[in-house]
Design a protein around this nucleic acid. Structure first.
Length: 270
DNA sequence: GAGCAGGAACTCA
DNA sequence: TGAGTTCCTGCTC
């Protein structure tokens, strides 16, 4: 999710998290294998094609820029398949893609080419149908409307999508801790604060993110936030730090090698 | 005085 | 039973 040019092999990992089904990922993979390859340098002209063709582009497509380019190429090749995102109509995909052995049937080169094009269009149709269904599912999961994803210009589209995967990450991050049905752990809460430096940088911040070393700048504030989260109005730093110290023997948090006041270290930094 | 370390008893899901 | 929470004593900076 974090970098925009990741290949589908990684999509197979992240796809399910954003609602992409294994089915559509497989279809996209297959189509990539049989079709042309585009590098990231071709994104821009394809974005121009996107504007010309009026194809709406979802943030989920940007998760895999190469695949986004593929979809744009698809829209150029077969405009009828390029459905506007806002409509979110689920297409009736073909039952299966026919495999035609043109050699055995003795088809002419021209007819063979047409057969291949037809087959490719059917595959593309299946892929688009699956992707659109997945996007609809993902929108439902994230409680966002498809209209939120519509952009009018390529530049705005790129900018918008760069912001949206960040928001999605945050939503998933919060979902991990608050929607799983499990009470949040203190170390998770601290990590949450550290992951939002623009919000909590004044009360807690990384000293060395790679090593997982962080400093509590405003102990009273962090304790107050923890108390709010756990509905413990009497929480203070003395109690919070006692909970942190419980992590010493569990191997979750420890004091750094050079011990400093209000400085702790995650034993296994992310 | 604030923070640190750790024991012990307690609550809560 | 696990994960804190609360209270405590003693120590260091």
């Amino acid at each position: 999710l974090e970098s925009q040019g990741r290949r589908l092999s990684e999509g197979a990992v992240y796809g399910p998290r954003i609602g992409l089904t294994e089915n559509s990922l497989t279809l996209m993979e297959r189509s990539r294998g049989s079709g042309e390859q585009w590098d990231l340098g071709e994104t821009k002209p394809n974005m121009e094609a996107l504007e010309r063709g009026g194809l709406y582009f979802s943030c989920f497509d940007m998760l895999f820029t190469e695949d986004a380019a593929w979809l744009v190429k698809l829209s150029e090749a077969s405009p009828a398949l390029a459905l506007p995102m806002t409509r979110m109509e689920s297409r009736e995909e073909p039952e299966q893609c026919p495999v035609i052995d043109s050699q055995e049937q003795g088809l002419s080169p021209e007819l063979e080419r047409q057969v291949e094009e037809r087959s490719l269009e059917q595959v593309q149709s299946m892929v688009v149908g699956e992707v659109l269904k997945d996007i609809e599912t993902a929108c439902k999961l994230l409680n966002i409307t498809p209209g939120m994803l519509v952009c009018t210009t390529p530049a705005a589209t790129i900018s918008h999508f760069q912001e949206l995967p960040g928001i999605i990450n945050e939503l998933w991050s919060e979902a991990d801790s608050s929607c799983s049905g499990q009470p949040i752990h203190l170390w998770q809460f601290l990590r949450e604060l550290l992951l939002k430096p623009h919000n909590y940088g004044r009360c807690i911040r990384w000293l060395n993110k790679e090593k997982g070393i962080f400093k509590i700048e405003d102990s009273a504030h962090v304790a107050r936030l923890w108390g709010l989260r756990k509905n413990r109005p009497a929480m203070n730093y003395d109690k919070l730090s006692r909970s942190i110290r419980q992590y010493y023997k569990k191997g979750i948090i420890r004091k750094p090698d050079v011990s400093q006041r209000l400085v702790y270290q995650f034993v296994h930094p992310v």
